[in-house]
Design a protein around this nucleic acid. Structure first.
Lengths: 132, 132
DNA sequence: ACAAATGATACTATAATGGTATCATTATAT
DNA sequence: ATATAATGATACCATTATAGTATCATTTGT
């Protein structure tokens, strides 16, 4: 029951590293050396961040990655969504229309409240808010 | 990233059902019929609850299960612990002594706070508080 | 003795996560 | 042009957690 998978965790570390280098183009190799993330895994992750327009990639010699958005516009919840899908801690095992007491189920209501609070606390966290 | 697995979820439903029957001995069959939980799965789960002293089982004809504790002494977090292990949303991928910046890692600090809040909200929930 | 219950335990299936490997493509410097 | 250093695309594999099944043994009331 982890909130954050390695994809998300690694990508946060990578983005923080890149953000600290303000504008420099950072290669996968730079990140491997500094963050000890397995190379092929990191490469995949960077490609995803590129596709999702979090990073911009530069191909060819001298290439690498740069942030596409300002660090205060990169929200952790976006990363979670990219790598882990919609943030949902709580899903009724009976899908909507089968569970007989969906409206009454007090447990589900409690979990919904907890989920909302988690989201509320995660929402404001950006890469820039983690920089130091 | 689910807070609650089926084991936990099913066992909550089962315990609520049993609790409502105040003191009656409830068989696995009763629960299967009423809660639509797959029989072998439910049976395993009841055996676990028996071992963990949440339920008391009665073997042989006329047997079944009864609550061993009062419903207000059965905490959801106990069930989570039984079926899912310690409630931990947040574990550094670098175990304690490897991550260079464990004390400074602001992200981990944030997650710790969120985790604490989740636990705080889950802690008071008992079977009796879900009885309606 | 029989039937109706649980106890014990081993097995299987599926999906998510974590990680690897390979080849193609692009861009720069010489 | 060509070699080199970078990313792009993709397919594959391993491990673990979750979900679920199957089987036989044991106990107990009638």
């Amino acid at each position: 029951m982890k909130l954050i998978t390695r994809y998300t965790d690694y990508s946060i570390r990578a983005l923080i590293f890149i953000a600290r280098k303000k504008g420099e183009i950072i290669t996968a190799s730079d990140l491997v050396e500094n963050l000890k993330i397995p190379r092929p895994f990191l490469r995949r992750l960077l490609q995803i961040l590129n596709k999702e327009k979090i990073l911009k990639s530069y191909k060819g010699k001298g290439g690498g990655f740069r942030l596409l958005r300002a660090p205060d516009k990169i929200y952790i919840v976006d990363l979670i969504k990219i790598f882990q899908g919609p943030l949902r801690l709580n899903e009724c095992i009976f899908k909507k229309n089968i569970c007989p007491n969906i409206k009454v189920c007090r447990f589900k209501n409690r979990l919904d409240k907890i989920e909302k609070n988690v989201i509320l606390e995660l929402k404001p966290i950006t890469i820039s808010s983690l920089l130091n």
